[in-house]
Each structure stands twice: as C-alpha cells, then as structure tokens.
Design a protein around this nucleic acid. Structure first.
Lengths: 252, 252
DNA sequence: CCTGTTCTTGCACGTTTCTGCATGTATCTT
DNA sequence: AAGATACATGCAGAAACGTGCAAGAACAGG
C-alpha cells in the first residue's frame, strides 16, 4: 500500500464515518500504529483533520467545508449518515430524500459501491456524479427552492415509476404525538410518495429534531421501518417512540 | 514495447485500479523501475497523474476536468454566456442544456430575473437555486455521469411535457458538413428532444468547437435559429456557416 | 551503405524518504 | 494514585528516488 494511498484512505474514512481510531485502522491495514499516527499528524498539520487522543476527527467545518457550517448538528449528521449509508447493500437500491442529512448520507456512501440511487435532489445528484459504480436516477419536476428538491405533481408522478429496497427520508420534526412532520405541504406529499415506492422507509433525524414538530404531517409511525438518530437512547422521547413500536437505530 | 504504448498502459492501469506501484509494473512489464519512474514523472508533468512515493495516483478528476476545460476556453465561455443570457426575456422561458457553457449561462442570468428555466442538468439546477424569481423545472431521468445531465427514454419523455420560448444547446462540434455534433448518442437524442420543445434554438459554441466534429449528429442546420460564438467573424468556417443561412451572434 | 546524432534504456551511486521498534513522556481511566 | 494506553522522538534498516553515464537502437543525411 502506497503512503499517499493510505492518506487518502484515512480522509475517506473520516468523511464516511466521522472519526478515525488509530489502533483500529492500523490493525485493518496491517501497518503499525506509528505510521497511522504519523499520517494523522501530517493531515492535521495541513488542516485536513483534527487530531484527538486515540485518533482523529474531521477538521472544524469552518475550515474544511463552508456548507457544513450551516448544519445544525456539526458532528451528529455524519454519524447518522454513516448508519444510514450502511443500510444500502451492494447491488441494492435506495431512494434518497433531499436536505443536509441526506446529503451527508450521499457523501458517506463508499466511492466504489455498486448501487442504484434515486433522488429528487439535484444537489445530491451532483454529489454522486463521482461515484463511478452508482446508477443515478433523478426525479424531475418543479424545483422547490427552499429545500432544493423537486416537488409537486410532476415529481410525485415521476416517483410512481421507480421502486427501491429502502427509502431514507429527512424530516424537520419527530414527535411522539405529532408524528413525522415537515414545513411544506408539497414536500410532505413528495416524501409520502417516495416512501410508498420502497420496501423499507427509515427516517433520518439528528438529535435536535427529536421532540419537535412542524406544520405538515409526513407519515404515521406505522408506515416507517425505523428511525436513525444520534440522540441519547435514554432520551424520554426516544423511549416513548420505542413503546410505539418504532425501531430506533442509534448512531454513536 | 513502445514507450508510448507503455505510457498508455500506465494511464489505463491508473484508470482501472486507481493506483500504480512502480515496482509492480516494472516487474510485470519486464522493464526497469527507472523507466517506469521516468514515465510517471513525465505523466505527472503533464498533469495526467499525481506522483507519490512508491508510484502514482490519478490526478484528481476535478482538477483534470476543470483545468482541462478551462484551458480550452479561458475566457470565451463567459462572453458567449452573456450573449446567450440576454436572449432570455423577463417573464420568458428557456430550456437550458447541460455542460460548462450552459452553466456559464446560468451564472450570467441576472439574479432577480423573473423567468422559467427548464433544464436536465442537476448542476445547473443547483446553480439557479439562489435566483429567487426564477421558476425552475428539472427534467428527470437516468443521470449520464460523463456530462452530469439526465438522458435516456425517461428524460426524453419528461421533455415532451414542457414548452419554452428559447432553447440554448451546447455541442462539442460545429462543422459546416458534419453539422452540430456531440460525443454520446443518448445525449444527442436528448438535445434533439429539448430543441423540439422551444420556439427558437440557439447553439452555444465557444471558438474551439468551431470546425470540429464529434461522432453523433444532434441537429441539421435548418432546425436551429442561430449560433452564439466568440470565434472571429471572419473565420472561414463561420463565414461558410453564414452562407448556409445560419444566424451567427458573435460575442466580443 | 555508412556515419554522426539523438533518444531511450538500464545500471551504479549517493541521497532522501519511509517504516517499525525502542525509549521515555504525557494523558486517560479506575 | 497507579496502571494502562497513547504519544513524540530518535534510530536503523529498507526502499524509493534523482542523477550521471554508457551501451544500444532509431533516424537523418551524405
């Protein structure tokens, strides 16, 4: 393995999983921990990661990615995204919603994963252009500027022609009584249409969404397979959801 | 083994496997490591690969494509784009093709212009998200990665449902005899479908496209309204096009 | 066909870089 | 506070590197 290749591997790992544990990587690649530590030190010197005891974390969003700064949960989203990305099997298909969390999922997909990604977000489509083995299908329609996705009748109609193994939906509110909610009525309808085209539907909800509600209902609890979140599993809202029969995947 | 042949082999290897280990290639081809290293050094000097200790890695595609394309038309595209953008009237509608020139047109549209933009490029859709008064319609379909646009049957079908005042098409070749050409057969069909949905069709062609031809015919001259280029108006190819009845808009 | 030139290639040599280990220090956990 | 773990540093062997050089091939001109 080339030294530079190893370095790329580390950066990829950092982007996909949001963290690096020196010991694990050393064992995985069959090299000494010293080399890993040296690489991390160099990467940190270039501002490409943040060195911490035991490994490394992504460099502060302000430095590395301006867009990521707008994220409400600076390190929750990559974790949620990593868990969600793991639900996409090689050769499988996924319907990917729009939004920053879904974008994180797109970035967390391994570069060489062979899969089919169906999305109504031009942003996500752009982000996946450089995944050579990913088949990409974009659902057309009127672009709803607030969240940069296609919505409306044409988009819903386009969604009727696709099918996938799993649907990953972002929402703005996750509340035991209000259910899964979002801020726009057309967007809610679009999410319902997407969910209906997949065998399983998982909700992506970083911790700050838990316990909040937005105006428009997306789906009732029965229609979803699970919830992926980085909230504390002992959070009262999360426990309440589990009593409702919602499968909760906790990202750590 | 010829030197040029060896060079091609290296580039192929780089594309297929994502890396080159000098020692391995030398053993495989039965030549000295020195020769491999020399080749890699030359390739790196041309920006075709990134030299690293032990071998080489692909030059980042973003760097290669972006630089290569920018190198082709250092400042012609913005000029062409400005002329093209002026064809979009307030309240009017435009079908915008994909590609770097069309992207330049999107960027050249005034921020507060009220118009309808129909496109099959997620990149262009993303670029227009921040135009508050522009209605944006995205044509869905299978994403053709090479040029980052939707193509194929679904995309052509989606195009049947829209109409616009003007269609702005990019091509890779503009030749008096070969006509307007591009490098992919599906892309050519998509461009035809787009052109058919607009009252007027203009071709965007920075000067380096003039006089060249690609494998697939897009449209015959009769179907287009005009050609927008930054080539010299006294260029023999341009003059020949004018005798064919093509309206040439020269960007200065 | 011969000859001089240019280019390529492999080898030798000294230099640089990488890597794992050993050592002593810092930091975390219990 | 003590043990465990992670860390930085120095060191030595190994590997990769660049450069100069000479042998050989390809080529142009006479």
């Amino acid at each position: 393995m080339l030294a530079a290749e190893r370095r790329d591997h580390l950066l990829g790992l950092l982007a996909r999983e949001g963290k690096i544990v020196a010991k694990e990587v050393a064992a995985e690649l069959g090299i000494s921990e010293d080399s890993v530590r040296r690489d991390l030190r160099d990467l940190a010197a270039e501002g490409l990661c943040q060195r911490v005891y035991g490994g490394a974390l992504p460099a502060s969003p302000a430095v590395v990615d301006y867009d990521a700064r707008q994220a409400l949960a600076p390190d929750g989203k990559p974790k949620v995204a990593a868990v969600a990305a793991a639900l996409v099997r090689p050769g499988g298909s996924v319907i990917l919603d729009g939004g920053t969390t879904a974008l994180a999922v797109a970035r967390a997909l391994p570069k060489d994963l062979a899969c089919t990604v169906i999305t109504h977000s031009p942003t996500i489509a752009s982000a996946l252009i450089d995944h050579p083995r990913a088949e990409l299908f974009l659902l057309g329609g009127r672009v709803f500027k607030h969240s940069a996705v296609t919505c409306g009748a044409a988009a819903v109609e386009a969604a009727q022609n696709v099918t996938a193994d799993v649907c990953l939906l972002g929402v703005t509110g996750v509340h035991p009584e209000a259910g899964l909610t979002t801020g726009d009525v057309d967007e809610a309808a679009m999410k319902r249409a997407l969910s209906a085209r997949a065998a399983d539907t998982y909700i992506l909800a970083s911790y700050e969404k838990i316990g909040t509600a937005s105006p428009y209902r997306v789906l009732p609890w029965e229609k979803i397979t699970g919830l992926i979140t980085d909230a504390d599993p002992r959070d009262p809202v999360v426990e309440q959801l589990e009593t409702l029969g919602v499968q909760v995947l906790v990202a750590r």
